[in-house]
């Protein structure tokens, strides 16, 4: 299956990855060949098969609704690209 060039651009946008115009064609070839591999699944009739949700038959574990973690804001922000007054800085969003 081959993707259209504008589909590749749309996927890149949804994935929030900048792709230069010159990269689209090569990327299209690669993604299309992977989708070609994936589409072999269609040969298998799975109409009566329940999709697998989890490899083990286990319920989601619950825990009491109590505070278990302490604040590590300073430690965590020490590896951030830009912070100020305990906040993460990004380009202005609201004018």
């Amino acid at each position: 299956m081959d993707l259209e060039p504008d589909e590749v651009e749309k996927i890149a946008h949804l994935a929030r990855i900048a792709v230069a115009a010159g990269e689209i064609e090569a990327l299209n070839t690669e993604l299309s060949s992977i989708l070609g591999l994936v589409e072999r699944m269609a040969e298998l009739d799975t109409s009566d098969i329940l999709p697998m949700a989890h490899p083990l038959d286990m319920p989601q574990r619950l825990r009491p609704d109590v505070v278990t973690e302490e604040s590590h804001r300073e430690t965590y922000q020490s590896v951030a690209p830009a912070t100020k007054n305990g906040l993460y800085l990004v380009p202005r969003v609201i004018e």
């Binding site: 994936v38 269609a42 799975t46 098969i49 329940l50 999709p51 697998m52």
Partner: peptide, 14 residues
Amino acid sequence: AYYLKAQQVRQVIA
């Protein structure tokens, strides 16, 4: 067509 189908195939393999 993709994710649901793959999870069904996964069940068949298991």
